[in-house]
Simulated scan of single mutants.
Amino acid sequence: MGVMILFVLAVSGVTGSPSVTFKPETASTGISTAPNSVPEMTKKTQQEQLLEVEIPEEDVMETGELNPSHYPAQRAAKVVQHFLNTRYGSPFRLFGLQRVHSGSAEDVADSGRKYHLELTVHEIISNAAQTCSAEVLFPRGEKQQAAHVQASCEELLKVNITSQEEALYEQFRTNQSLVSAEYLPDSHGHIQPQNKPLWHLGIVASSFVMLKESTENSLYNMAQVANITLLASENDRLKFDCHTLLHEMVSQEIVHWKLQFTWSPAEGVSVLQMEQLPHCHECEKPPSNN
């Protein structure tokens, strides 16, 4: 017998906190102060939607056909979303999970468990959607490994965003010292229009972490970009420092990660470094300016 739990998932995987966001205690001047952001209830962003997920009282790994609205199928589908963002995401292209139509799971010898899914993927910015087939293999072993994903949603890549990306790229290169933002979204769920490309870049970079960290026992969603700054670039790729907050919805933990990544229209997003930061309760609270 299952219990019904109402989750708020960002359709991008990534867009806004499912149930919380973070209010700055003081202006952040660098990536090291933001881990102390204080969670509070807030309004939801426009890119959020309600997704009802029925979670069994006992988390038993099922084989065979899965209920598409239950936790195991939704968890595997969320990994597909993160995978697509790491492969094709950009400041003007973000992928979200719209619906899981069907799913099944099987044990694969000593390799792990493989999920077969039919799902509708949503490209949020262009408001396009496509039904895709995907496979997700969660490897088995003592050391956690990233899930292996196969998915093809070519119809969602047909919208040409080259001119938008090139214009933003030139804008960032021209004004490097001015490119930074913090608390995306803010405590009211708002993001200034000029900061949305930075929010989207933070989402795509965070998808690399969520893809790496996702297991059969986790469900990651983007909560907030605490701060993001464009660094001095040494080549054609723009380099960013980013502190991002992820919501692990099973444990209800907010997990802090420091990322360094590059972006260019030709090469896309590539994460150079990722480091998990201490939990908030292990950090000292920053002084208030009030």
Rank of each mutant, 00 (worst) to 15 (best):
271 V>T: 00
212 K>D: 09
183 Y>M: 08
124 I>T: 02
152 S>I: 00
110 D>M: 09
252 Q>C: 14
285 K>W: 05
225 V>W: 00
172 F>R: 04
34 A>K: 03
87 R>Y: 00
124 I>R: 08
180 S>H: 13
124 I>W: 10
252 Q>T: 15
88 Y>Q: 13
111 S>L: 15
178 L>N: 11
273 Q>F: 04
138 F>H: 11
182 E>G: 12
65 E>S: 14
189 G>S: 12
73 A>E: 03
181 A>I: 07
209 V>K: 03
231 L>N: 10
182 E>P: 02
118 E>F: 12
236 D>W: 03
180 S>Y: 08
214 S>T: 02
122 H>D: 07
8 V>C: 15
5 I>P: 06
45 T>R: 10
125 I>P: 03
71 Y>D: 06
43 K>Y: 11
114 K>H: 01
174 T>C: 15
131 T>M: 04
173 R>P: 00
103 G>F: 05
88 Y>K: 11
205 A>L: 11
271 V>Y: 03
6 L>M: 08
184 L>E: 00
170 E>C: 01
197 P>K: 09
19 S>Q: 05
132 C>Q: 04
149 V>Q: 05
281 H>K: 12
132 C>E: 06
156 L>Y: 02
214 S>P: 06
158 K>Q: 14
121 V>Q: 04
278 P>E: 03
88 Y>R: 04
255 V>E: 04
241 D>P: 02
169 Y>L: 01
34 A>N: 01
70 H>L: 06
256 H>V: 00
70 H>D: 06
84 L>P: 07
184 L>H: 02
282 E>D: 12
266 A>D: 08
12 S>R: 12
127 N>F: 02
178 L>W: 13
289 N>L: 12
219 L>S: 01
214 S>A: 10
240 F>V: 09
65 E>I: 13
161 I>E: 12
71 Y>W: 06
70 H>G: 04
111 S>K: 15
241 D>L: 07
139 P>Q: 11
124 I>K: 08
46 Q>W: 11
104 S>N: 07
29 T>Q: 13
236 D>M: 05
32 S>D: 02
143 K>A: 15
84 L>M: 10
106 E>W: 02
248 E>L: 09
186 D>W: 01
170 E>Q: 07
244 T>V: 08
288 S>D: 05
102 S>N: 07
227 N>R: 05
38 V>I: 12
105 A>F: 05
124 I>A: 15
216 E>V: 13
142 E>L: 11
40 E>W: 09
95 F>N: 11
236 D>N: 11
253 E>Y: 09
288 S>N: 09
29 T>A: 07
54 E>W: 10
38 V>C: 09
54 E>A: 10
31 I>G: 00
273 Q>H: 09
65 E>N: 15
145 Q>E: 15
239 K>S: 08
231 L>D: 01
283 C>G: 01
233 S>E: 02
262 T>N: 04
50 L>V: 11
